[in-house]
Amino acid sequence: MHIDTAYEGPLGDYFADNATDGPYNAHTDRPALFALAGDVTGLRVLDVGCGAGHYIAELRTRGAAEVVGVEGSATLLRHARDRVGEDDAVTLHRHDLEEPLDFLPDDCFDLVVAALVHHHLEGRRQLLAEAHRVLLPGGALLLSTVHPTADWVWHGGSYFDEDRVETRFGDSGATHSYRRMTMQTFLGELLEAGFALERFVEPRATEAARRVDESRYLKTHRTPFFVAVRMRKGQ
């Protein structure tokens, strides 16, 4: 099943603005993934579902030698281009993430980042296989997604439901869809793709989120919102 979940038009504009300093993207997910990344100096990085370029900009600031961003939304790519500016070390591609990354060669990246994107996709296993393929031996995948417990709290039903759900997108008035999954499914698919688990975190908002939205800051300290992992491709 192919579902278009790219954030286009006003929703893409809202996301780009919100992700800049919002409590969830800027102060929960991004700090967690960069803590998992460690030193990225000199690395060649693929950002899958690069959105408005926030991770790309920070990767370059932290010393990544080259970053390739892939995104399905023309709106978000426009924001990403504006954010990274004239940087010859950054390449951006518009590409449907339900399709293979066949324009990228095997064994060419030190690090792949997939921030809060793969739960939107029906072809999760394909995306993980492609991440594994394009990584150099010993390379790492950083991946974050909605926490299965949060889905259970928000949407009810059985924890083991893996249906596609619609949820309100912040204060935008719009909704977006994604497929919820159990922790067993989440980790199992990563292991089946050939990755080994190095680190697993359930991030909470940093103190900086208090000045943005204290109520949402507190929510992340009561209910797990996201889960993030660092996975390793074998040598």
Rank of each mutant, 00 (worst) to 15 (best):
Y55A: 03
A16Y: 00
R230K: 15
E58M: 06
S73P: 05
L127A: 09
V112W: 00
P31Y: 03
G22I: 04
D102T: 12
I56E: 00
I56K: 03
P100Y: 13
E189Y: 01
T5C: 10
E86C: 06
V201C: 12
R210Q: 13
D21C: 03
M181K: 12
L59R: 02
A205F: 02
G63I: 12
A65N: 07
L101T: 12
L77Q: 04
S172R: 01
G69I: 01
L143M: 09
W154E: 15
A89S: 15
L143G: 01
V112H: 00
A209M: 11
V227W: 01
R168T: 14
V165E: 07
R232Y: 07
D110G: 00
Y14L: 06
L141S: 01
D151K: 00
T220V: 03
G123Q: 13
V165M: 03
T41L: 04
F186A: 13
L76H: 04
T145H: 02
V70H: 03
W152D: 13
F226V: 05
R222E: 14
H221F: 02
V90P: 11
L197Q: 05
R124M: 09
E162H: 10
S172P: 05
L142G: 02
D102W: 06
T41G: 09
H132N: 09
M231T: 03
V70D: 04
